Structure formats: C-alpha cells, structure tokens
Computed example of a mutant assay.
Amino acid sequence: MPPVFRFAPSPNGYLHLGHAYSALLNVRRAQESGGRFLLRIEDIDPTRCRPDYEQAITEDLAWLGITWELPVRRQSEHLAEYGAALARLQAMGLVYPSFESRAEIARLVAQRDADGGWPRDPDGAPLYPGAAKAVPAARRGELMSSGAPYALRLDMDAAVARAGRLDWDEAGCGPDGEAGTIEARPAAWGDVILARKDTPTSYHLSVVVDDALQGVTEVVRGQDLFHATSVHRLLQVLLGLPAPAYRHHQLIRDDEGHKLSKSTLATGLRTLRAEGVSPAEIRHRIGLV
C-alpha cells in the first residue's frame, strides 16, 4: 500500500506562508514516495470556521499547483464518528464532566499561582485546576440534565495507567532538536478536554480518529504540534487505532522570530497573490525550491 499524507487546515482564517510550507512539504514527500495526498478541512468550531475561508483554502492551494484526492473530508460531517470514539472512552471510565466556566477556572489558577505556582502544559496554558472528578455521579447527571454548560475531560492519570509507557518514532525533530524514539509524556497536558456540550469533539480526539479512518500513514506537520503527539499517542492506544509515522518540521517565522499565525494576522497567501507574487517565489521564500 502506498503511504498516505494529509494537509489539514482549519477554515478560520486565510492560509499564510507557514501553511504553504507544510502543504508543499507533504505534497513533495507524497510524490517522492509514490504516495497519496489528502486534504482535510478541520471545521469543528462553528463559531470561527466559515465557508469563505474554506473556499480561500482550496483556491490558494490550487494556485500553488497542489492537487488532492476527492472527496475532501470535512470534520463537521463526521461528528457521529467522534461521538462513537468518545463513547468508548466513557465506557472505560476515562471521561468525566467539569462544569466550571472559563472565568472560574482563571480564578482557581490565580489562587494556586498565589500559593506557589500552578503547572502549565507544553503550550503554556494552565492545567485544569478543578475538582470535578470528585463530584458524585448522581450530581453530575443532575447538572448535565439541567442544561448547565460542561466540558468532557480525559482522566489523564487513569488513562496513562491503562495505556502504560508510550513513544513514537520522530523522523523530523522537535523544537529542541528531539529526534529518534521519543517518550510520550501525555500527563504534561493534564486532564485535556475531549468535547464540550456545544462542540461534540476536540482537536485531539478528532485528529486521531480522522487519521485512522483515512488511512493516514505519514503525519508531516509543524513543530508547534510536537508535544501534542503525546496526547495523540495516548488516544491511539486507548482506542486501538494505528499510529502513523511522525515528522515535525520547522516553522516559518516573521522578522522578529515569531511563528506565523492567523491570530496575529500574518500576511495571507491570497494577499501575496494579489500583490503579484508567483507560486515559484512562494517556494523560494519558504526554502522549497
């Protein structure tokens, strides 16, 4: 079977040079290995994802000379599959609801910081500080039935105990040059959110389900997702899903050394295209000539 690669952007903004690098690198590796290249639209967030952004994604990729297999997988069309995976984890007793608002969580973190500091995950966000695991099952049911907002979290301690030691083979490198066999450390992320009342899946859950169902064998993505691989390996083992090979690549950065991001309004490919920049010049700028 030929290797399968994928590029999986979210339609919550316009593609920039960093996306171009990742997409073109996946295409190059697929071509070199006689593999397949898939486009996946990660649109599980209805508040930020928009059809016009998805259209812009396909236009920009086509302008770069990229083609992909059809049909394109859109996560919003596969919520039942993520729900089935979540139900399996729930049946293992590895999922619990938490009911604190974001403001309440911020206050808890501030209190714990004042008491000597509170741990952060590899992305710098504070770990979940609440005590929802101690809420009796009957009370949890009452709160959920009442319509109260909630997040469904992975009981990380129980999940790690069930899965045992985990690792992955890194063909690229992490932010600090990590390569080779990498020991997964999912506990560094705390009790991650797997779904919310109004969003029935999360990035962590949907990405491992998608990769398995699409037969993805090679995950080529940015170093900003290197540490998240620990959570993905944990979920793959818990759900009995195959593990693809991982290759994390360098990030394209601005003149101040910051990674390009939609949230910081990095110059989009569509803007560069409108300014007369050619696809060949894009490849030159990102070092993929």
Score class of each variant (00 low, 15 high):
P2A: 14
P3S: 12
F5H: 13
R6V: 08
N12C: 11
G13Y: 04
Y14R: 09
A20D: 11
S22M: 08
V27M: 10
V27G: 01
R28E: 03
A30S: 10
A30Y: 02
A30W: 02
Q31L: 04
Q31W: 01
R36D: 08
F37Y: 13
I41P: 01
I44N: 03
R48E: 09
D52L: 01
Y53T: 13
T58S: 06
G65D: 05
E69K: 07
R73I: 11
E77D: 15
G83E: 13
G83C: 04
L89W: 01
L89M: 01
A91S: 12
M92L: 14
L94W: 03
L94S: 09
Y96R: 12
P97K: 07
S98E: 12
R107V: 12
Q111E: 15
R112L: 14
D113P: 00
D115P: 00
G116H: 11
P119K: 06
P119T: 09
P126Q: 10
L127P: 05
G130V: 14
A131T: 13
A131G: 06
K133R: 15
P136I: 07
A137G: 00
E142S: 07
M144D: 01
S146G: 15
P149R: 08
R153I: 11
R162Y: 00
R162V: 11
G164D: 07
L166A: 05
D167Y: 12
D169V: 06
E170A: 01
A171G: 00
G172H: 05
C173W: 03
G177T: 05
A184K: 05
R185W: 00
A187G: 10
A188I: 00
A188S: 07
I193P: 06
I193C: 14
S202G: 13
Y203G: 06
H204N: 15
V208Q: 08
D211N: 12
L213S: 01
G215P: 01
G215Q: 04
G215V: 10
V216N: 07
T217P: 03
V220I: 15
Q223R: 10
T229P: 09
T229M: 04
S230L: 11
R233H: 14
G240A: 04
L241N: 12
L241G: 09
Y246S: 10
Q250M: 13
Q250K: 13
R253T: 15
D254S: 09
D255M: 02
L260P: 09
S263N: 09
T264Y: 05
L265M: 05
L265G: 02
A266Q: 07
T267F: 01
G268E: 03
G268A: 15
L269K: 06
L269Q: 08
R283P: 01
L288E: 05
